[in-house]
Amino acid sequence: MKGNEALAEAAVRAGCKCYFGYPITPQTEISAYMAKRMPRCGGVFLQAESEIAAVNMVYGAAASGVRAMTSSSSPGISLKSEGISYIAGCDLPCVIVNVQRGGPGLGGIQPSQSDYYLATKAAGHGDFFMLVYAPSSVQEMADLASRAFDDADKYRMPAMILSDGLLGQMMEPVSFKDHENPPDNKEWACVGHKNKRPHNVINSLYLKPEELEASNIERFKKYDIVKKELHLAEEYLTEDADIIVTGYGAAARIARSAVNGARAEGIKAGLIRPITLWPFPEQAYAKAADTAKVFLDVEFSMGQMVDDIRLATSCRRPVRFFGRTGGVIPTTAEVLEQIRRIAKEELK
């Protein structure tokens, strides 16, 4: 199964009732899959007139209490920013999938990781964050989609699956786990009050600055809880590693191959692969910084995650960067060469 299809199937199994999409390469398989799948399970598939409309349909569906999802690729996510901000401002749960391609502008259609900042720091206007998950395999495309729905509901916030064209398009075996779907009983949802309760209002407008401030402070208290509870990372051969190679998603696969290559040459390299990008799994990096000497960040971008690694390690160790951008995929050989160079020049 393709990564995009695995994600779509997992979403349906996780109780996604409404999917709103708009075609854009390389994520269109998600729409195509949902178009076939949703009618068969009583769900809603709708191709919207724009990415903006699609995310606002998600907003409506989420406000009425159902699990809803939209997907796009980088340029389309820019358009969705408006809706994402409203959804966050209303504390609504939903899942947004970004199968990244190269940018800025129309950019290209090949795999890229150039939306890290957008996803983790600047998903729209205003003081807010969303949960960000970075799958690294087709299996994880499925598993994290499922998890994203649960966590989004638990914390009442939007969640993004930050994937890329490589993971979306590639096929690997995948197995789907049983998923217990939640009851349809969100007490805050706009479903008609049946004359049994005061009317519900889903709103992000606060004309009094003090009220808006209070609402933002309240939301950030929630973020503190999320940061404590949710920070996922895979650590591979890190315990005795001098060089920690790190990268998320598809880049981590290449980094892992390079780490194996380095170990075969006797270089003590290890890998940290963040699975949640917001919250950033600072703990794994802080721990590794106690023993490792150098970090090497590998991305399909100009180095958007470097700052977070520096913060997580309190700048105790140098953080080097190697990346290819614009849709060019770094090769294992290129990353291995970087590891060798660091081993030679920076390790005594």
């Binding site: 919207a48 907003y59 409506g60 406000a63 809706g83 008609g192 889903i202 992000s204």
Partner: peptide
């Protein structure tokens, strides 16, 4: 029950509901 939409997006939000 009321939902506040972004500027111009009310028909899309209504569609979702």
């Amino acid at each position: 029950d009321m939902i506040e939409a972004a500027h111009g997006r009310a028909p899309a939000v209504a569609t979702g509901v």
